[in-house]
Design a protein around this nucleic acid. Sequence first.
DNA 1: CAACTAGGTCACTAGGTCAG
DNA 2: CTGACCTAGTGACCTAGTTG
Lengths: 332, 332
Amino acid sequence: MTLGKCEICHKDCSLFNYGAQCCNACKMFFRRVISYKTPLLTCDNNEKCFESPNQNTECRLCRFQNCITAGMIQNQEKFNLSNVFPSLLQLENHKRFILENCQPSRDFTFEEATSVRTMDFVLKPLDVTFDSFDWEAMTQITTTDYLKKLNFSKMLTSADLKAFLKSSYLDCALFSTAMHYYSMKSGIIYFPEGIDVLPKETRVISAFKPEFEIGIKSRLIGRLAELKVTNEEFLLLNMIFICNPAARNISKTGSLLLANYQQMYSNLLLKHCQVNYQQQAPTRFTDLLSLCHLVAQTKRDICNIVLLLQFYQPGIKWKAMLKGAIEYLLEN
Amino acid sequence: MTLGKCEICHKDCSLFNYGAQCCNACKMFFRRVISYKTPLLTCDNNEKCFESPNQNTECRLCRFQNCITAGMIQNQEKFNLSNVFPSLLQLENHKRFILENCQPSRDFTFEEATSVRTMDFVLKPLDVTFDSFDWEAMTQITTTDYLKKLNFSKMLTSADLKAFLKSSYLDCALFSTAMHYYSMKSGIIYFPEGIDVLPKETRVISAFKPEFEIGIKSRLIGRLAELKVTNEEFLLLNMIFICNPAARNISKTGSLLLANYQQMYSNLLLKHCQVNYQQQAPTRFTDLLSLCHLVAQTKRDICNIVLLLQFYQPGIKWKAMLKGAIEYLLEN
DNA sequence: CAACTAGGTCACTAGGTCAG
DNA sequence: CTGACCTAGTGACCTAGTTG
């Protein structure tokens, strides 16, 4: 009867569950994790339990990594629109509230912001005013904080979480900002209190062309308006862009997990389009996905601005957060 | 071998089952549903799974809708008198018990009563007395509750269930009341405790002719007595009248399902007549079916009374239930 | 007897429960 | 949190009855 072994715990087993040959115990474990019944995942063994197959201590995180490696994947059925929207919306609103009303409890570094540790925020006194750099740093910190709260973030190893956060936070921040100001009927993006997203230092750069500025401030938002993107579509698209299995330095397991989630969000968006657009669903779906290119282009524009700033204004004192972010950005 | 595709799940398939080209899996699914082995049917996807043909997630309700649309129909053989009578009788008796001994747990609206949600009843204290309007509302609520418990009701989408309930509850209530008091040897209908079915407000209407009153109270019951309608005949006739494929606002699929059931109950009644009346079976069958016109006529009379009441007694405060019911009635 | 179909059986899996 | 055990839905396969 026992024709094989559980791919996770290597016990004798002939069952198939969630797409992998696995015993009942591992099935139940996987199910509890992916259904967010038991969200906390840490490893006391340097996240290397699974590297030695004869190890007798397997922590929950490493056990889950094994599940993903074995190809286990959650049933799409419970991952439906009515389950997913409310939590995404709540996270998005919470992020916006923190961004507009709080400040970080101290000067976080880029490495700290992209680590597993959570960051504290305190209410911002009314007399504190942020300049463009402050807002940029604040946006990055709230965005990484937001990304860490996503369900699948808690299923990544600390190294993969870092790789994921570094690779996705900027796309997420850009897309989310554009969507926010589009929904406020604005044609360009800015920071709260009407602060320009481009620091004043850029004004004196002779090589700085107006096309650049327009590109950054209104290319993405303009397309959102053209397509009349709804909030639901944005939330799903954002997840699809974020779950990038090709994130730099990510492990094979992390990549698999992100690919699974990207697939599920993608299916969900297609379904959403089919319900709302019938025959035009494939066109709508493609139009929405093509926003990905605009986000990437905006990111390249920002990269160029940073290079120009470094060249023309070498004396700028970057905040800890921005310094690290820029280093990562220019490493590409 | 594979000359076509399953009309439900679109897999390659050359079989015909239950009147449609369909694979074994869909055959088994349909069989289980119509035999009430697996009664519960809900959709998490807004009941639109079947609107997009390439969807990978198909819920049970939508899959069943597809079966009906493909023309699948149950074998009449298992749908015989000895299977059908006991459950119909039990539902009818249960409704009568609730009507005479309970009251709604709160003031339901017409929309609530015709939604999928079940309604709660509580035992009526002995000192509570109902007037004519109370009884009318109570009759409508118990009737919709009764209709929701019919097997095929659980196979309708929520929208179709609403359309079905709104279109059928009054016929059902009128016919059932008439049958009840005919079987009690009464010549006219009334409400429990001897309450007049016509509210006292009608007495002062000058345009109110006695023929009207007689029509409503004794036309139908008189004909039941003339024909000496048996309880079995009533139960089947009631189903035939209720399963009206021409219900207003019903979808094509819902209409098909009701037509199927109407056909089956109709076949059953004819068979029942043949057993009990031999050569006179066709005559008996036609006589019984003609009761349909009397129910419709009684409904028109009620419609007229409501119009008169609204004209002569504009100050009446209708209960929530009656208000919605009247609006629907007068929309025709 | 060969092709076909209604209905039965049963191994299999997703998900729930509950004692430990 | 864990995992043995339970339940319900599923669909491949089987059987018996029908028909040309």
